[in-house]
Amino acid sequence: MPVITYRQALNDTLGEELARDPNVLLMGEEIGVFQGSYRVTEGLLAEFGPKRVVDTPIAEEGFVGVAIGAAMLGLRPVVEIMTINFILVAIDQIVNHAAKIHYMFGGQVSVPLVIRTPSGGTGQLAATHSQSFENWFAYCPGLKVVAPATPYDAKGLLRAAIRDDDPVIFIESLALYDTKGEVPEDDDYVLPIGIADVKRPGTDVTVVSYSRMTAVALQVAQRMEQEGISVEVVDLRSLRPLDRPTIIESVKKTNRAVVIAEDWYSYGVTAEIAATIQEEAFDYLDAPVYRVAGLEVPLPYAKELSAASKPNANNLIYAIRQVMRGTKRMR
């Protein structure tokens, strides 16, 4: 399998799907002439033209609504929101319409729409530009939410999302765009939405993660091996539907769990996973589930303060050692 970047995997997949289905079109700010704020759509305007690669004005509520309406008539729009921070002005269209239309109208119409957007913080982008809102969407029945961690998964899940007849929120990460990995060339390669992946098998402790935190978890797992701790990494890949059986199966085997995510601690993704483990594997736990998440502040700009507020490998190592000792989380 060729080794390519996460960005290239996305770019290839968008191009292939545009070529495969004339009803697929890309919409978003700066995706065409500017070639994409993070170059994910680079070259696609030149190859497919302005009908298929549509530069929009800065009007997220408007063009997300337009994409939903167009999807109801059979187009398959793939919308880019520059970063997830800007999705908030479109959230009404996503939650009240995209997520509801199929159910509320008795299954008469569907919304085959993908919204791609990078989430999370990197490089001192400060309070308004570093947020992780995927849990807001994962909370909402009627949506599907996926968050690939590798180029392999990025390709398989983006294909699945574009070919799916429901609205899919596709979470990317600025920090992952340049990471590399193997990607299948097979035209029929698709990953199922709603299935987690054991990225690394282990026996002592389960780390549950997704997107960029899976990359952190895999590095930490390698280091832990030198300490004699065998870490199993469960990569969620899909936040809605959530693959509870895979998480539970892993925890029943290792009897210990750490959950890591970049969003804020309270009410975040880690809370949902911890609750699930408590409900379905309580008797198997040798230590309380440990959650690693963002510190609860509007992310400060100053370099050191900013970095200290986001979870990193040290936070995860600390958490793993704590659960191995069976101690409670220290706030």
Binding site: P192, G194, P241
Partner: peptide, 10 residues
Amino acid sequence: YMYATPVPNT
């Protein structure tokens, strides 16, 4: 009528 394309774990 949850989803038009069925997926696991629903």
